[in-house]
Design a protein around this nucleic acid. Structure first.
Lengths: 353, 353
DNA sequence: CTGAAAGCGCTTACAG
DNA sequence: CTGAAAGCGCTTACAG
């Protein structure tokens, strides 16, 4: 196809211009879809571009135009299902808009000042490369990053349900996980449980919105409010929490901050010889891919992470383009998925009650 | 801190130079760690940089130097554990070397020419933005991307075990999953099973190296070679395969191409009332985070995905810098993790045999 | 509709 | 050790 003699340097707009017999400014107009180019000229330039295999230099474009068509997402983890799915959604939307997406993972933050520094460094580095930032702020590291972003750089945060309605200046997206936690808890209460215990994920806020939703439901029902057990993200910490809960014969219902935690709880209950859902009911959060296939399969709350990612990109895009100022808003409503792991208390056979 | 009057445009090296009383070339030398700068000058410039909050423009640097300090990883999915963990490893190593990492997901390829086009577009877009490419080629889309990368762009592939030793011109990294499949199969055979059935992941090659390793072990033992069942990546397809296998009373041992598949198989066996490992043994692949917590917990093969990602970056880095030509090589040896899902055939209590 | 000029913020030889 | 010049490949007004 391209029969250029030497394989040296990739063709520039000047090479295209020469080959097409126009000035390089005209080539610039063509690749930028500028209206004032005669159709025949445009055709010729386009043909030459294809023939030479020209591709605009992203660096030169960014330098000259001041705009980057790139964003980077700041995240504490890419391996957790929710985070990975959000990333997938962002990437999908970004690709459709021909934005490049970078990923920068926040180092594990241990709450010390050193962690703050690391976050700040990550934010700065990311801000350099990108035209905009999306920070996933489900955890302390992410929240710190959120506040460390300089005002000049376009940013949107994927956050937990805000405790109070954010002002119009807060470019945030979220799913209403507080309501979701409330629904999940109520589901358990409606099944007849006296109260519901909670194993929490690390939270971005002091209390955490999932925790708050769980408490909302308990209070509304006048149920006792046991202290939540602080978990991490992984099954191992769910397992540890589950062992403690398994020892207490009064525990008949457990809500978990995510499905991995729930898996660990399920395992601990199994090891302790407590039947699920016969003796103890367990409900998870997220509807991770494996949750439909565990034994028992997991009743959980489905969150549209990919949709959240797409919404985050859309918001960022409009912030960058400064079209309409988009108000922050919940993106979708979580949905309770009822499976096998939760049932009425005290009966081995829920169907008989 | 920074008491610049106007918040307009970020400071450039010229601003720094003026403030520090040097030429902007000297500033350039300082930020590039060029040796020939008088220490006192360096100090002064560094102080000014900090004071003004100067950050080098990535675009200008890339344009002027021709080098990008950025890579993008091409992957079919960011949500599958293995892929996500590789990405995590790449990012970790890249961050340490202050490389930015981009992610571009290959659209689902259906084997048609349209898919080829999509892959080609993705490759070109990614190649534009980045100084180098890492393609995860565990699936047909990835393999196609691997071959679609223009020769001029630095690239390394994360691949299945190559069928034959690759030449020195092939910048590939892999874990020896063929040997791993062989070991896992042998483990089952050694337990006393007459043969081992296999549920495969979609493969990059016609046969697939995990499939080949499984077959190796069967042949070496003189065991029958049942036809492998083609699975996808997800538990649902494992479940479908598991239902078929559950109907055959001769099936006593099943190897799965990944842990998600194995989870689906476990579930299908449970639904069919076949005890694991009492009647049927199941072995997975990958050691995903949840595999230690299912019931029964999963015997599987642990692969060091993060290490693979770090190695991929190291290779790419050396390709870009053109230091020593690094030979392609397996990065680590997989390790069989024995848990509960596999045992001797025909006995409900393995300990009694 | 199209061309000539200046400039984006750096780096890279080249002088001194 | 440090400065002046040219250039990386584009875009953005400004002319015509």
């Amino acid at each position: 196809m391209s029969v250029t003699g030497h394989t040296s340097r990739p063709p520039s707009i000047r090479d295209v211009a020469t080959a097409a017999g126009v000035s390089y400014q005209t080539v610039s107009r063509v690749i930028n879809d500028h209206p004032s180019v005669r159709p025949s000229t445009r055709e010729r330039v386009l043909a030459t571009i294809a023939e030479l295999g020209f591709r605009r230099s992203a660096a030169a474009h960014a330098l000259a135009s001041g705009r980057t068509r790139a964003l980077t997402v700041l995240s504490a983890n890419t391996t957790l299902y929710g985070y990975a799915a959000i990333l997938q959604g962002i990437e999908e939307a970004a690709r459709a808009a021909s934005f490049a997406v970078g990923i920068s993972v926040l180092e594990v933050s241990d709450g010390t000042d050193g962690a703050d520094d690391a976050v700040r460094r990550a934010v700065e580095t990311a801000a350099d490369a990108a035209g905009g930032l999306i920070v996933i702020a489900y955890d302390p590291g992410g929240v710190r990053a959120l506040t460390a972003v300089p005002a000049r750089v376009p940013m949107v945060g994927v956050v937990e349900t805000p405790a109070e309605p954010p002002g119009p200046g807060s470019p945030w997206v979220w799913t209403d996980d507080r309501a979701a936690a409330r629904d999940a808890t109520r589901h358990l209460l409606d099944l007849g449980h006296r109260t519901v215990h909670y194993v929490s994920i690390p939270s971005s806020t002091h209390t955490g919105q999932r925790t708050a939703g769980w408490r909302d439901a308990l209070r509304a029902a006048g149920a006792p409010e046991p202290a939540p057990l602080a978990g991490s993200w992984d099954p191992a910490s769910g397992h540890a929490a589950g062992r403690r809960l398994a020892r207490d014969p009064d525990v008949t219902a457990i809500l978990c901050g995510n499905d991995d935690l729930a898996l660990g709880v399920l395992r601990a209950l199994h090891e302790a010889g407590r039947a699920v859902p016969g003796e103890v009911s367990v409900v998870g959060f997220d509807d991770a891919p494996h949750s439909a296939y565990t034994t028992p399969s997991l009743t959980t709350v489905r969150l549209d992470f990919a949709g959240l990612g797409r919404a985050a990109f859309a918001l960022l895009h409009s912030v960058i383009e400064q079209d309409a100022p988009v108000d922050p808003h919940p993106v979708s409503t979580p949905e309770l998925v009822v499976r096998e792991s939760a049932g009425p208390p005290g009966g081995r056979d829920p169907a008989l009650r």
